[in-house]
């Protein structure tokens, strides 16, 4: 189906290359990192600093190979940082300084 070639990479319904890939149905508990990112997203939404659609936009902007390599919440923190900089809540300079200091 040639439509499939026009899809965005996160638009995964029925995509041929995943049809033979098994689903890992084992339970995987969330890490402290996962739970913190989840909580942070909810707080930013509650404070009207980022909508869920902005979170999704930031996730969809991650290049395809990275998108599939990163775990679920690693995509989220990347999108959250992206959105906070887009809105000027934090600046890239501040973030760099913070990362170098840590």
């Amino acid at each position: 189906m040639d439509k499939e070639t026009k899809r965005a990479h996160h638009d995964l319904g029925g995509v041929s290359k995943f049809m033979c890939e098994p689903v890992d149905i084992e339970p995987h508990g969330l890490t402290a990192f996962d739970r913190e990112v989840d909580a942070l997203r909810q707080m930013l939404a509650a404070k009207k600093l980022m909508t869920v659609d902005e979170l999704r936009r930031g996730i969809e902007a991650i290049p395809e190979a990275e998108y599939h390599r990163l775990s679920y919440y690693r995509r989220w923190i990347r999108s959250i940082a992206d959105n906070l900089m887009v809105h000027g809540v934090i600046t890239e300079t501040e973030l760099r300084a913070e990362l170098e200091g840590s």
Binding site: E66, I77, A81, D82, I90, L95, E98, L99, S102
Partner: peptide, 22 residues
């Protein structure tokens, strides 16, 4: 900068937001 290791990114974002009182 978004390619920074995720744990470090979270720690940095959280500290900045906390320092700003958000």
């Amino acid at each position: 900068i978004l390619e920074t290791d995720s744990e470090r990114l979270l720690t940095a974002v959280r500290s900045l937001l906390e320092r700003k009182g958000i």
